[in-house]
Write a protein that binds this DNA or RNA. Structure first.
Lengths: 231, 231
DNA sequence: ACAACACAGGTCCTCAGACAAGCTGAGAGG
DNA sequence: CCTCTCAGCTTGTCTGAGGACCTGTGTTGT
């Protein structure tokens, strides 16, 4: 079965994912010698160089190891807890859904537990987001993420903060693409400002339900954009 | 400066290590656009395909990302951070709180999206938990976690499943301690059975609110034990 | 003067072919 | 039975050729 004739992504990545799946799903257990490069090229329907690059990608991830003259061998079935990589490969809608779960509940906790310093940090971050509205898309997304990070920090749970930090890079990348693609900031330089101000206010006032609702509504709007990126 | 003319190791690996060093040592910070393939081939003294394979290896390790027509960009300076270790060092109450957030919301999604296979898996896991009630504490905790994993899987979000899988080992360790410490199973061999059965039923019926409430109540009880482990 | 368009050059992506280097197992020879 | 040679496989490396894509530049139209 050859790879999809139309190419939604580079052939190398498709080949890499196919073989990665065969490894993680146990079809090629640890110790297996993979078929030869020519054989893989034939079954995958791509050129030999493409196969070689895909194998290098797997080797870089620590899944396989090539031995000249002997073959390519599976040396691990998991990419060593590679969360950033997994997030980068995952569907953006799945990532965003988890972000919604984590952040809406973090907002509840933040409204319960926020200290004066948290409120100060949130206010500063909100001002930073307003300032960044004058800058380019990347700067604006950074400021937006900083505000959300401050919100999660106010929940006063280090594990939660670490979790959000793990998501941030993947989020940043995709959000910048999204903002550019949709031209979200063409008519309004500072989209979502009122919502975010209301969110900060709700946390300051300790209104759990309001904080959760405001944030959920805001995030659901973006998620809706992700489901149909072409306006 | 070309690579060593005599080759103690494949040129690809030498090239990979050279470039990896330039990234980790800060010579190419995050965001840098690497020189073109031809330029790299010249400076490294190797062929273009060798450079391409080396870049693939770095991409597989999550250090760089290629964008067609634009260039190859540095996206990270370290392969990954040690999440399992961080979780093990974190306070159990913080870990458990995040677990609650993730799992209660997963229960909502599961009630929405569960397929027939999911329901079958949940039922099987519930039966397994009942069976494990005859075994020792470790086996019982394993069966309990398997049931919760099946619940998260029914939410049909791979990122969420991965996230729970990340928490599972840390959870298992602490829960076994907890069960032994409190002697939870001295008077009742199968604590929480009714609750879990009700949870599975709620998911089967698609009752989002019930699923969330049942699970939250259950988890809050355990969390309360964690706050004062000495009875 | 300003905005929209067309284009050229650079980039990565893919393939095919060729040869070199290294391992492995079958067979010849002792 | 053991050892050695070697043919045939494997991966490693390079080259040349297009194709697809992005970006900045210059042109054109208003």
């Amino acid at each position: 079965m050859p790879l999809a004739s139309l190419r939604p992504s580079p052939l190398v990545e498709q080949a890499t994912e196919r073989m990665r799946a065969q490894i993680t799903e146990g079809e090629w257990p640890v110790g297996t010698r993979l078929p030869g490069e020519n054989a893989l090229a034939k079954t995958l329907g791509v050129g030999r160089s493409t196969v070689r690059e895909a194998l290098r990608a797997l080797a870089g991830a620590g899944l396989v190891q090539a031995r000249q003259g002997s073959g390519v061998f599976v040396i691990a079935t998991e990419p060593a807890q590679d969360w950033p990589g997994r997030l980068r490969r995952a569907a953006i809608t799945d990532v965003y859904e988890v972000r919604m779960i984590v952040e809406t509940q973090a907002a509840r906790l933040a409204a319960e537990r926020r200290t004066e310093e948290d409120v100060a940090a949130l206010t500063a971050a909100l001002a930073g987001r307003e300032r960044a509205a004058a800058g380019d898309d990347a700067a604006f997304v950074d400021a937006d993420i900083a505000l959300h990070a401050a919100l999660v920090a106010a929940a006063r749970n280090p594990v939660l903060s670490d979790l959000f930090a793990e998501f941030a890079p993947a989020l940043r990348e995709r959000l910048i693409d999204l903002v550019e693609l949709l031209g979200l900031r063409e008519h309004e330089r500072n989209p979502g400002h009122d919502t975010h101000a209301a969110l900060v206010a709700a946390v300051r006032e300790g209104d759990k339900d309001a904080a959760e609702d405001i944030l959920r509504t805001e995030l659901e709007q973006t998620l809706a954009h992700l489901h149909r990126p072409r306006p």
